[in-house]
């Protein structure tokens, strides 16, 4: 969830800076996730152990988070296209 929070913040900022919501939506499913993972590694790396101790590997965690972020970006795209 923390990676997703970083990703949403980055994507919203990008959408505001470029004045284009589509840039934010694309960022949410792509580069925002990478930057979100980087931020998580920098600021909350020890929290990976929270998941490791219950058998969740980093690969599983990243895959799951990526799927959530792609789903979020699809919802955001649907909302944008409906309103546009």
């Amino acid at each position: 969830m923390d990676v997703t929070r970083y990703n949403i913040a980055i994507s919203v900022i990008l959408a505001l800076i470029t004045l284009n919501p589509l840039n934010g939506i694309v960022c949410l499913a792509t580069g925002g996730m990478v930057i979100g993972l980087y931020c998580y590694k920098q600021f909350q790396q020890s929290q990976y152990y929270f998941y490791y101790n219950i058998g969740i590997t980093k690969r599983k965690l990243i895959t799951f988070t990526w799927l959530i972020n792609i789903a979020l970006s699809l919802v955001a795209a649907l909302v944008f296209l409906t309103l546009a």
Partner: peptide, 10 residues
């Protein structure tokens, strides 16, 4: 199970 040096709880 592993207790790292740094706190690991959210």
């Amino acid at each position: 199970a592993y207790l790292p040096q740094e706190g690991f709880l959210p």
